[in-house]
Design a protein around this nucleic acid. Structure first.
Lengths: 330, 330
DNA sequence: AGAAATCGTGCAATCGCTTGCATAACTGAT
DNA sequence: ATCAGTTATGCAAGCGATTGCACGATTTCT
């Protein structure tokens, strides 16, 4: 059927083990033999069967990226897909394949199968899947969590951006711009990253704090804001948990004729493609998703290669200042 | 090391081939034997080694999704990532894994390796990779192109949304709303889908046509529009090739104090998450990315299973009417 | 009741590659 | 020239499943 290693061996007049050694370059082979083998490989258009290789060598040459998405929206959230790009790049450099799997329906099972059926050499997991029972089944199998797990923070291996620091950045920037009553808008207060962002906000704030949760939709943020913004002592600035919230805020300000940035300052998390095209453009706490994916993958490969222990990596966020928060002349 | 099929066989007091048959359910086995085998499997926590299975059976249990992305942006474009969600779902139902691979650096190579090294049983390809030489190396290997190839349209297997029909929908809607001078904004006029959208626009339009290409950025659309919109005989409506273009248009209208939708109608392709939150909300030609991914994957599996021939599937788009184009009372 | 067909299971070859061990050829030191 | 130490390659045993063939035990048919 397909060309096998022994076809090549025959043509090159050597043993198949020699061909194998040439391919894997891990033994001393005469240059002349190598040449003969290479020529034969070219001639027969030989491609080693990766399944056989993996079976024999015990390495499958793939890593798994588990997502936890109930709908296309969550799956395509740009945070995930951008990191994925970086992960794929690192994997490609290492000659590894990337398998994506949605674990939404059966978390444990998906992960367990990927490991135990030897489909991957390592896993990148979403923080939502982390729990003691999973950690037990995972044992010393190489994995890295992309995000901070809610539990077992110190006993797991993860890479995340520093959400507290992000809020800190946002608050200080707003303070420097002279805003007085800075509130926090949006987010499911049960999600770890929201909790950390809010914590960062509370630590950085001086004076009264105000947190307005939303269900993640623009609509919800908008309607929640309308009453609040009509009060006398309304906040004069918001840190928004995400772009949706910021959009709701923009809409509410438009409706109430509140001027941005003179009467209202806005900083939002996540640099969505359209965030710089709103009116006015949004100041953003930017998460370097490329770096995040890159570091995660790198760490995973370190663990695959050297079986090294748990490690936690925290990446800083950056502030991209745009009009929505810039009321002082530069 | 790991639990193998013969460990199970031993414990159940049968031959390993029997265990194999029980697992694959493709031979008559006494209920009693089955029970013994299942019990043994449970007890040992047996997971069949997928590599060995694949090697022996000749099926690898994975499909490959090739992307053609130079940067994270292209990779995370929501069109791709949403379809991916649907593809993964179909694959999961079939017990298949999804491998993603970026072919941007070495198109041919990526695809060829995936096939010839037996990493996947089938491929989903981006239209940009289609060319005669690829088709030759791909032979009768199962694949489906997600999008319409620029060449070999009739000789390949693809699934796409009907871009011409989308433009038609947009133009007719604008005409019904009483807009007279409908122009087309945006897009790289070399990309197949843009060409088709423009073609649909030209066919549907009555009277003078005007196409304003952009480089895909909001900025570019904005600046290109400024001069055009200041003319007397400016268009009173636009079909936008994408959301970026629409944003540029919104910005230009804001700047020139052109009222939407009374003085200007807007319809844009692609239902970005934020499209309904602009001011005013955008009327959209919506591509059902879920359906697209689903159909693509289904077709691929049909080809994997039955080796059926090429097929072309064209899916209709839908119009989501919002304020940006609705100037007649309902 | 005897022949034929069917059922349930075991045996062993096979998938295509890797790798430890063995060996022959060559190198260089004494 | 001898012996130890390399170097280059072959041999064959896996890796962990699947599957065609064989064969005894049942069931079905006439």
């Amino acid at each position: 059927m397909a060309v096998t290693i022994s076809d090549v061996a025959k043509l090159a007049g050597v043993n198949s083990s020699t061909v194998s050694r040439v391919i894997n370059g891990k033994a001393s082979i005469t240059q002349e033999t190598k040449d003969r083998v290479y020529t034969a490989m070219k001639e027969l258009d030989f491609h080693p069967n990766s399944l056989a290789r993996s079976l024999a060598s015990g390495l499958c040459g793939a890593i798994g990226v588990v997502v936890d998405a109930r709908d296309a929206e969550a799956f395509s959230n740009f945070f995930f897909s951008r990191s994925l790009f970086a992960i794929e790049q690192v994997a490609q450099e290492k000659g590894y394949q990337v398998i994506i799997a949605n674990g939404a329906q059966s978390k444990g099972r998906t992960i367990e199968n990927l490991m135990k059926e030897r489909k991957v050499d390592g896993l990148i997991l979403p923080p939502t899947t982390v729990n003691p029972s999973l950690m037990e089944t995972i044992g010393d199998f190489p994995y890295v969590v992309l995000g901070t797990p809610d539990t077992l923070r110190g006993a797991t291996c993860w890479v995340d951006n520093n959400n507290e620091q992000g809020s800190d950045l946002a608050v200080h920037h707003l303070q420097e711009q002279g805003y007085q009553h800075i509130a926090y808008l949006g987010g499911n207060q049960k999600r770890g990253f929201t909790i950390r962002r809010v914590r960062g906000y509370k630590k950085a704030i001086t004076g009264g704090e105000l947190v307005i949760p939303t269900d993640g939709t623009t609509e919800n943020a908008y309607s929640a804001l309308l009453e609040i913004l009509e009060k006398k002592d309304r906040p004069d600035a918001f840190v928004c948990n995400d772009n949706m919230a910021a959009f709701g805020l923009l809409k509410a300000c438009r409706k109430l004729k509140i001027q941005i940035p003179s009467e209202m300052g806005i900083v939002a998390f996540d640099n969505y493609p359209l965030a710089e095209y709103t009116d006015p453009p949004l100041t953003i706490v930017d998460i370097d998703t490329g770096m995040l994916g890159d570091q995660t993958a790198q760490l995973l490969f370190r663990r695959i290669d050297k079986r090294c222990g748990n490690q936690q990596i925290m990446l800083s966020t950056n502030l991209i200042v745009r009009e929505s928060s810039e009321r002082l002349a530069k």
